[in-house]
Structure formats: C-alpha cells, structure tokens
Design a protein around this nucleic acid. Structure first.
Length: 898
DNA sequence: ATGTCCCGCCAATAT
DNA sequence: ATATTGGCGGGACAT
C-alpha cells in the first residue's frame, strides 16, 4: 500500500514528517552525522544516523495515514498498547535482524553515564531477541523524560548548589551533553538561563564555570531593581488590563494606568556585562539569556508573583520591538517555556494555570525567594529572633501562614497544578535520577521551618512584607505579613554547608552524589553552621508544592485507625487517616489568599485560579473553593466534612493515595486563613491548638527532588514537639512524616518526632545527606527521622537522639550504602537512584502496588531518554506516541492514579 | 483544540 | 573554513 511505502521512507528518514522528501532527510542525516562527529569528541552515539526507526513504522498497521507515520506506529494495537516501543521492536525484529543488531549496537554505544542506562542496556541486550523489543520499548523515554526541565535537573544535580568558594567547577558542554545523553544544543538552553542568573558563566569555548546559587539573591535583587526601573509591573498591568477588557473583566482602576511606556525598556544586561560579547546586540538581544532575565524580572516586580506566558511574551516582544506578528508571539512563548522549565528546575517558579472565564491560561508563579535583601546571615539572625514566637503559633496559624506564604511564593493553592508540574519535575527526576531526594527532603523541611518562622515573624511583627506582597497581605489579618519571608536565605544558610538549596530542592543534591567531590569539604562547614542553624532554624522553607493540612488526625483517622493520636506512633495510620481528618478540617479554602476584596479578580484570579483549578471537580462542597474568586472570605470550617479533594485527585486511586492527595488539597484550601482575618484565624488556630486531638499536618507535596515524597508535619504537634518548644525554634520538633507521593501514600513514612539539632551531616556523608541533616537539624529538633513503613512507626518522639545515623536514614543521600543496594524495584522505589531512599525502600511498603512499582522502577533504571542516545530518541520520537502507561507512570508516579 | 515543548535546521559568531 | 552558539519554528505530544 501506499502507506507501506511511505512508511518505509519514513523509517528511513529521521523525521517522520517529511516523507516526501526522503532526500532531504538523507541529506540532513549526513549533516547531522557530520555534525555529530565533529562536534563530539566523545564517541557518543551516532546520533542522527539512525533512522532506524523505520522499524517502528507500521508495518503492522497499515491503516494509518502516511502522513503521520509516527503516530501510526504508536497506535498499533498489536503489541502492547501501552508502549509504542514495543511495537516498534516487534516491527523491527520482524522486519530485519540487521536493524535489530544495529539498535543493539547503539545501545552499547550509549553513554554509560547513567547507571540506569546501563541497566537498561543490559536488560535490553539480554532480552534482545524477542522480548527485548518489548522491554526496550517500555523503556522508551517518554517525551517528558526528555524534557528540558528534567534535563536541567540532571544538570543541576551534577553541581552543588552552594559550592565552596574554593572549589571551582568548570563545565564542559560536550562532556555534559554526552553524560546526559543529549545534544549539545539542549545544554545551551540550560546554560543560557543559568547564566542569566549567574549560576554559571562562560569561561571559554565550550566551557562554563559553575558558581552555584551563592549570588542568586544578589542577582535577583538586581533584576528586581531593573524590573522596577523598567516598569514592568505597569506594563504587565496594562496588558492584563487589556485582556481583561477584552474579556469584559474590569479591574480596579489601579491597574490601568498602565504606562504607555511599555516599550521603553531596554535590556539590561546588568550582568551581561560579564560577557565580552555584549557588544553585539544582534543576537544577544534576543538571547535566551536576556529573555530569561526579563522574565524573572517580571516575577520580581509582580505583586501577585504570577506571570502569564502571554503577558510575558508580549512584554518581551515589545521590548525587542520586533514586529508584533503572531508568529513572533508564538516563538516567544516557546522560548518562554524553555526558560520556565529551567527556572522551574531551579525551584524559582512553578507552573500554574489561571482560570478565567475564557479558559485557562498558562502561567508561572514565583516560588523563589521574595526577599533577597538580606544576607543569609541576616536571615539566620532574623529567624532566631523569630523563634520565640513560633511556638506561639499554633499549627493552625502556621498552617495559615504557610499557606499564605506559599501563596506568595509559590502557591500551594494550586495543588493540583502543582502536582502536575511537580510531577513532571519531581517525579521524573526521581525516577531517573533519584539522587535528589535527599535534597528534596531537606528542602521541604527547610521550607516548613521557614514557614514557621515566617509565621512567627508575622505574628510578632506583622510587618508587612516587602514590596511584593502588599496588597494581598492586607486581606488577612491573620497573615499579616507573610509576604516576604526570605525563605531562601534561610535555607541557604542552613544548607549552605550542605549545599542543599531549598529552592533547588529539586534535586541537585541527590545527583550530586555523583558529582562527588564537593561534599566532603562541605561537612566541616556544615558543622560550624549547625549551631547557627539550630538556633535560627525555625524557618522552614516551603517549596511551592508545600501544602498544609490541618485537621484533627483523630477525627480524620477515626474511620480507620485513628485511634492513636498521639503521635506518632502510628504514622502509617496517620497517613491514611490524615486525609480524612484533614478534610474535615479544611473544608474550604479561601480562594484568595490575601488579596483584598478590592483586589478584585485580578489578584484573585491569579492566586485563586490555580486553586480553582485544583478543585475543579469538586464543586460540591468545594464550591467555595471553586469559586474562590468571588469571595474573599474563605471560610473553612475546620471540621467539616467537606471533602473536596477526593474527587479532584485524579490520581488518588488508592485510599491512601487519595488521602494524601486530598490532604494536600485540603490543606491548601483550608489553610487559608485569609478569609476572615480576625475571626477566622483565631478560631482556627484555637481550635487546632486547643484541640489536642486535632493534629495538624503540613503536607508537603513532594517537590521534584523528593521523588514524590511528601512530608507531613503535625501541626498539632505532639506534646513535645511543637507545643513544648518554647518557642522557638530550636525545637522544631515538629514531627514530620514523609510520605511517598500521593499515589504511594500507603508507603512508609518518615516520621520524626523531634529532631536533634546537632546532627549535622557528617562530612563524609554525601552531599545529599548533608542537606537533609541540616534540614533536620535546622528544624532544631533532635528527633530522629525514621522512615518507617506504614507499619513501622517510630516513635521516639521524645527522645532526642541526635544520632547522626538517624539522619542518614533520612538522608536519601547515597550515603546510605546498604540502602542503595536495597533499592529495588519493588521497594517503593520511587527513587531510582541509589541515592537515597534507601530507607524508604527498606520499608516494607506494604501497600504499594507492585505493578506500579515495577514500572516506575523500570523507568528509573532506564533512564530513558535523557540519556539515551540521540539516535534512539529519534526513533523513539517517531515512535513514541503512546508512551502511555510507562510515561504516565513516571509522570504520575507521585500522583499515582493510574 | 490548546498547551507544551522536543528536535534539529541553519544562521550568526567565534576560532 | 570549521566550530561553537543559539534563534527559530515545525510539528509531535500532552491534556
């Protein structure tokens, strides 16, 4: 049939699309090959050549149109539906043995870098014959696995977030490209935006120097200032206004004044100066680097901290003064996505969706530090001062604060959204990289601490936040000033030693292990720092994803096991329970967090919208939530049963999973203190506080780095922990639970009754660990962190063992030797990496569905794509289509629905 | 249908 | 001339 013919061609040609021009393909191929050869010193794989894909094509399935060969392949029903790859393989095998061989070869060639890959390869090889195909296919990296965001995480994982001043790390583009199994072009995308934030700088051809996040605050400060000078805020307002107008929305007047000057701006390369090349405007002006800076500026000057892509694109276009044609816009948006992916990996922003009448608009919310005015040290100090208060705060308050904060920075409101985003980020990483986990945990913890801290501050001072938050804050009395917390600073200090960066929780650390090097040196510092940290630690840095749940556990639990409230013992139970409890507590969330009513939609939209997104399904009870926009008050009845979440969570299939998810969800919503400032707050807090029974938990959604783990902090605090702590921080003894991603919920949890402060990670420990430790220590409590399967609960709450070891357990870090080995597919293994999670793995993880694990596991090992040779990719690309389950898994891993 | 964004062609630059 | 950078946008993939 025609189809067949086409197919063949297609196969031959790398790009499916161009069937017509087989010739072109061939040419391209040559170029590519050449290109490859030259460029790469490394033997890399023959990237482009293999068009082999053909195999995939639909020999089997002729049905499809020639036009879209790729898809056809995917669709092929025969083999396994879920993995297109399988089909391909089959085809291949059927088609010709030669091809198969070739492929094998390729595999061999692949960069060894990832262990995962190796595994894969080996596996594949083994299988090769028949089944191989299937396996192979299964492994086939999904598109997401090849995403820039994931790639960026991997990249970041290679270097310490906070490298010692002494260590100079140089980055060889070729080397990195090979090791990550991607083309150099992709590395440029990453490096360019990192460069815009001064995380790296170009030192020579093909060489970049790694600086880490040390100067990030400074850079952000500079960008903020520039952004203000540029009047971006006004521009944004104008654009938004326009849109609104179009839509019929009308904001308050304030926004409109919009400055006509929208076009005035010029670039600022404040930093650009670094590069000699600045001279040329031509390309550079449009460079990703500059766009990245501008994009960041937009966030920094935005009151809502949310920037929609279209607005950003328009502003950027205007500046560049390019012709405003639509295509430009599209291109700009595309670039913005590239930038956003990197920024997301840096944990500076997160994806959210703004829901409007017209529909949803893609947007990103700044979840990075808002206040970078102070130095790390300063931050520490601040935190210390804050400490006292912190005790005051009841869980509820905390929760609220956290929430606000989150909203500010990153909203947790959009839980759902967040999940998705994170999923991508975090889950993926976990699977492939695993390494991050450790860091992730740390971060989360840190985040929590930050929250507390902030809260405290708020309470005590009520200061308003800085520039960023003004409007919003007004709304909630309860949350007076959340706006600014400098989360990041805190984190840094804490981790600095460890390298972890809160923000970056994403992973870097985990991977770092690979990197090796840095860690050891770090340790010492860390120790020194520890004390400090401890002292000041109350801060918690909350990643955007963080969510807080509040509810009485007992109640919540009640259904099942709630019997034990106390604490901790039954962590597992708690987990399961938690959801329900939470639900009760939080019924509704306040849509708008801090915005004043007046703020109007705009603000609301931003913040809330995401929420709305989250809730979408659940109109029933959540109606409020759903339509948060309208009202400002969020009332949440603490104990009601509103149950919003369940429905929402798509993934939550399993009970536990659901619970978790729900919790998250609820938390975000409930949390909202904002609603009524006066009354509400108190009430909530009181309730919570008073109610012993009510345990509140903070649910932290796993950031990317965590691999899907979530941490629950009991708001209610166990006796010793929070409540007792006089306050402050030191005893941040908030018990924490780490939960696997929602889907995994059933899994083991980490529970830390108290944390021992001292624990700093040992020097020797991996970087990852370090962070973790710090985080814990930072928390100030001495508790141990334990990972316990559901069954196991640790309960040592009171005991403050400081043993470092405990930490280790927590640490995901690779440091845990045994654990690594342990990692099995079976184990919850979210983590693919040896890295961390040893503990987790160990844990029995009763509930996890094997199948799921398996898949995940596989993926993990495989490391798809990223690593995979380009060649493969190509093929895959064409083939890929289904991705279905496998991919999903990865994606969802955290969510777990599938 | 719309949102994302991978992929890699090929031009601008650097060597 | 060749190599390095990176703009750009087609079109696949995800929702």
């Amino acid at each position: 049939m025609e189809v067949n013919c086409l197919t063949l061609k297609d196969l031959i040609s790398p790009r499916q699309a161009r069937l017509d021009f087989a010739v072109e393909d061939a040419e391209n191929a040559q170029k590519e090959n050449i290109f490859v050869d030259r460029s790469r010193m490394t033997p890399k794989t023959p990237m482009k050549n293999e068009p082999i894909d053909l195999s995939k094509q639909r020999i089997f399935t002729p049905e499809r149109n020639p036009i879209t060969p790729v898809k056809l392949v995917d669709r092929q029903p025969q083999v396994e539906p879920w993995t297109p790859t399988a089909n391909l393989k089959m085809l291949i095998s059927a088609a010709s043995p030669d091809i198969r061989d070739r492929e094998k070869k390729k595999e061999l060639f692949r960069p060894i870098e990832n262990k995962e890959d190796v595994f894969v390869n080996s596996l594949q090889l083994d299988v090769v014959g028949d089944g191989a195909v299937d396996d192979y296919e299964k492994q086939r990296p999904s598109r997401k696995q090849k995403s820039l965001g994931l790639l960026c995480q991997k990249f970041l994982a290679r270097y310490p977030s906070y490298p010692l001043s002494t260590e100079k790390t140089t980055i060889s583009l070729d080397e990195v490209a090979v090791s990550l199994g991607v083309e150099r072009r992709r590395i440029y995308d990453i490096v360019n935006v990192l460069e815009s934030l001064h995380l790296v700088s170009r030192v020579a051809k093909n060489q970049y120097g790694w600086h880490g996040r040390h100067s990030l605050p400074k850079t952000l400060r500079t960008l903020q200032r520039l952004g203000e000078e540029q009047k971006y805020e006004e521009q944004m307002a104008c654009l938004q206004q326009k849109e609104l107008d179009l839509v019929e929305y009308r904001f308050g007047e304030h926004r409109k004044d919009g400055s006509p000057d929208c076009q005035d701006q010029h670039l600022l390369d404040f930093a650009e100066s670094d590069y000699p090349s600045s001279s040329a405007n031509s390309r550079k002006d449009k460079s990703l680097r500059i766009m990245s800076q501008k994009f960041v500026m937009l966030f920094l000057v935005s009151k809502t901290k949310i920037v929609t892509l279209d607005v950003a694109a328009k502003i950027l276009i205007e500046e560049s003064q390019d012709t405003p044609d639509h295509s430009k816009f599209k291109t700009k948006v595309r670039r913005l996505y590239d930038i956003a992916n990197v920024l997301t990996s840096l944990a500076l922003i997160k994806k959210v969706h703004l829901t409007e009448e017209r529909g949803r608009k893609p947007a990103f919310k700044w979840i990075g530090p808002v206040d970078f005015s102070s130095t790390d040290e300063e931050l520490l100090d601040v935190s210390a001062s804050v400490l006292p208060e912190w005790k005051k705060e009841t869980c509820g308050q905390i929760r609220v604060c956290a929430k606000q904060r989150l909203a500010r920075y990153g909203s947790f409101n959009t839980v759902q959204t967040a999940e998705k985003t994170e999923r991508r980020v975090s889950s993926e990483p976990s699977s492939p990289q695993g390494g991050k986990q450790g860091s992730a945990y740390t971060l989360e913890i840190g985040s929590l601490a930050a929250i507390y801290r902030q809260k405290v501050e708020d309470n005590s001072q009520g200061e308003a936040s800085k520039s960023a938050v003004p409007p919003a804050s007004s709304l909630d009395p309860a949350l007076p000033a959340d706006s600014e917390y400098c989360v990041k600073p805190l984190a840094h200090p804490v981790f600095s030693v460890a390298q972890t960066d809160l923000q970056a929780f994403s992973t870097q650390n985990g991977l770092n292990g690979q990197v090796g090097g840095h860690l050891p040196s770090v340790a010492p510092d860390a120790e020194s720092l520890k004390p400090t940290l401890l002292a000041g630690q109350p801060l918690v840095y909350v990643p955007s994803s963080l969510i807080m749940l509040c509810g009485s556990l007992q109640e919540g639990l009640s259904p099942e096991s709630r019997s034990e409230e106390d604490g901790g013992s039954e962590v597992p139970a708690d987990l399961s329970l938690a959801p329900s409890a939470q639900k009760r507590l939080c019924e509704e969330r306040n849509p708008h967090e801090e915005d004043e009513p007046a703020m109007k939609r705009q603000s609301q939209e931003f913040e809330d919208s995401p929420l709305s997104l989250v809730m979408p399904k659940r109109p029933s009870n959540s109606t409020a939530i759903a339509s948060p926009v309208t009202t400002g008050d969020g009332r949440c009845t603490p104990v009601e049963d509103t149950f919003v979440k369940k429905g929402q969570l798509p993934a939550a299939e399993e009970v536990s999973g659901q619970a978790v998810a729900n919790c998250c969800f609820l938390a975000s919503e409930c949390g909202n203190p904002s609603r009524n400032p006066d009354t509400e707050k108190p009430s909530n807090e009181n309730e919570i506080a008073k109610d012993p029974s009510l345990l509140q938990y903070l649910y932290v959604q796993s950031p990317a780095g965590l691999n899907g783990f979530n941490m629950l902090l009991p708001g209610g605090q166990t006796p010793h922990a929070v409540g007792s702590s006089s306050g402050q921080l030191p005893p941040f003894g908030v018990p924490c639970m780490f939960l696997p991603s929602p889907s995994l919920a059933p899994f083991p949890v980490l529970y830390s009754p108290t944390i021992p402060g001292p624990i700093s990670s040992a020097p020797g420990t991996l970087p990852n660990t370090g962070p973790m430790n710090f985080g814990l220590s930072a928390l100030g409590s001495t508790a141990h962190l334990l990972l316990s399967p559901a069954a196991m609960v640790n309960r040592n709450s009171s005991i403050p063992t400081t043993d470092p070891q405990c930490q280790p357990s927590l640490n995901l870090s690779p440091g845990m030797p045994s654990s690594h080995g342990a990692i099995h597919p079976e184990s919850p293994g979210y983590m693919r990496h040896p890295v961390s999670m040893g503990k987790v793995e160990q844990s029995p993880a009763p509930a996890t569905p094997k199948s799921i694990h398996r898949r995940q596991r596989e993926t993990f090992f495989k490391t798809p794509g990223s690593l995979g040779d380009p060649i493969f990719r190509r093929r895959e690309r064409n083939q890929s289509r289904n991705t279905s389950s496998a991919q999903r898994r990865l994606e969802i891993s955290s969510s777990g629905p599938d």
